[in-house]
Simulated scan of single mutants.
Amino acid sequence: MKKEDFKHSVPVQMRFSDVDGFGHVNNGVYNDYYDIGRMYYMRDVLGWLPGDSQRDNQLVVVNTKTDFIGQILLGQSIEVLTRVVSLGNKSLKMIQWVIEQDAEEPLSVCESVMAGFQRSTGTSFVLPDEWRKAIEIYEG
């Protein structure tokens, strides 16, 4: 996969509390960055934010795998690139990169699976056609 394969990106503002005494971003914070990317992807592509208490049907993270490739240091300008790479019946798979702005190679890569979850019943559901169409149109 190449940087050009991603259509969605969001800059991330690093916080002082994200780094350890050596100025490295803590590996647990990478997941926060990926959450930011997922949140804005859903807003920009599906038209709603996850966690909205008014929405009964949500997408929730059910699996993640993160590879740490390079260091992220205090003061670097970073962004999260997000792409949906496959749609299942009740779930979708995303690939995300944390990348230094204007760079071509990722500092970290995350693969995640999100599933449809209905808050009122506590059960999964088949992804609606309108979500599928929006993702397919966006991703091409």
Score class of each variant (00 low, 15 high):
V10W: 00
I72G: 08
H24I: 01
G47Y: 09
K133A: 13
L107Q: 11
G51L: 02
D67Q: 14
I72V: 15
G47D: 09
I72C: 14
D102H: 05
G23T: 00
Y33F: 13
T66M: 12
S120P: 01
Q58P: 13
Q118I: 14
D52M: 14
T66W: 10
E139D: 03
I78Q: 00
V62F: 05
F16A: 01
I137L: 10
R43E: 06
G37C: 04
S124M: 08
S17M: 06
F6Q: 00
V126A: 12
I95H: 05
I137A: 14
V113Y: 05
V10I: 09
K90R: 09
D102V: 10
W48I: 06
E100R: 04
V126D: 08
I137D: 12
R43C: 09
T64P: 04
R119V: 11
V29F: 04
G140T: 13
Q71C: 13
D20G: 06
W48M: 08
G37P: 01
D18T: 09
S53V: 15
W97I: 11
S77C: 13
V109M: 11
H24P: 02
E79S: 14
V84A: 05
R83Y: 00
F16M: 09
M94E: 02
G116N: 03
Q13W: 02
T64D: 12
V80Y: 03
A103L: 11
R119Y: 03
I78C: 07
I99Q: 01
G28P: 00
D5H: 04
L46I: 04
Y40R: 03
E100F: 00
I78G: 03
P11N: 05
I36Y: 01
A115M: 15
F16Y: 04
V113D: 05
K7V: 07
E130C: 14
D67H: 13
H8P: 01
V10T: 07
I78M: 02
G88I: 08
Q101A: 10
D44H: 05
V60R: 09
G70T: 10
K133W: 07
N27E: 10
L107M: 13
R43V: 08
M94G: 02
L74C: 07
M39H: 13
I135G: 08
S124T: 12
Q54G: 15
F6K: 01
V45I: 11
E104H: 05
R15K: 08
V126M: 09
L73D: 07
A115N: 06
Y138N: 15
H24F: 03
M14L: 12
V109W: 11
Q96S: 08
S53M: 14
R15N: 04
V60G: 07
G70R: 14
I78S: 00
Q54N: 15
E105Y: 08
Y40N: 10
P11Y: 01
Q71H: 14
V85C: 06
L127R: 05
Y138D: 08
T64N: 12
E130L: 07
T123R: 14
V60M: 09
F16S: 07
R38M: 02
G140V: 15
N57P: 00
V19I: 06
I72P: 04
Y33Q: 02
S112H: 11
W97V: 10
S17T: 05
G75N: 10
L59S: 02
Y41P: 13
L107S: 11
D18I: 14
R132A: 08
D52T: 11
M42D: 00
